[in-house]
Amino acid sequence: MSTMSNSLAETQVESLATAGLSQGDVSDFFALLKPRVMFLVVFTALVGMVVSPSTVHPIVAFVSLLMIAVGGGASGCLNMWWDADIDAVMTRTAKRPIPAGKIQPGEALAFGMTLSVGSVIILGLVSNWLAAGLLAFTIFFYVVVYSMWLKRTTPQNIVIGGAAGALPPVVAQAAVTGHVALDSIVLFAIIFMWTPPHFWALALVKSGDYQRAGIPMLPNVAGPDATRFQILAYTILLAPLGIAPVALGFGGLAYAIISLVGGFGMLALALQVYRLRQGEPAMRVAQQLFGFSILYLFLLFATLLVEHGFGFFRPVFG
């Protein structure tokens, strides 16, 4: 009997060995979820929740937020599974768990799919099926529409793909209210319009990386000058959109000031990026715009969070 079980165990080890053993640690699996993106997803979703007019039980809100975070992480994981070949040739992404050989593609696919299905089902059971459907659509949009289709075929990849990153506040508000309200659509529009200037500023600096990977980012396809023009055009649309919550009544006095100052800051930097086209100063200002764009979006959402979550809301009109 013991000989039989020994030989069985040996066969199992053997089959594991031929299949290739997992080298991944728990931290590698966590890295597959793109923790920084997940933080942004949680943050914007939380703001979508606190600005909504209705409330839910705190535990339901917490679990909904957790599932939105897990769904966001799952889409990041599936994106890494699909993009492992291009991640391997870009300096920024070469150390990710799959190209680094720590996690096998099949493991990442199974992990991402399990988390995707699980997060959608739990969100549907805990809150409502509209929110769950929107989360499923977000994952589908990021993985299939953006990663599998647009990213490698069109220089407008991040414009359309940006919709996936902009959806978390809509999902979160749907989880609370049961419908899609104008407030969350405005938050969606702000992130959507913010994405192109943010990523193209990075693409201007890292264009060599994207070129090597064969990704048709705008600077590689249309050239840096056309990219600079588009950055400026999107920023001109973004700055007034950033103030829209004030006009709609859910952005208070503090938000009005921050969005005005921040909007002018974005415009000034985008104008600088448009004007400075040569050498080190051009790279430096693109990098500054990239950094400032993160601060701008963070401040807009953080101000809404403080105003609504901590009772600091002071209306601008009336």
Partner: peptide
């Protein structure tokens, strides 16, 4: 993924 010979057992790290 590590290529390994059949019947090779796990290392302590694995």
């Amino acid at each position: 993924m590590a290529d390994r010979k059949p019947s090779q057992s796990l290392t302590p790290e694995e």
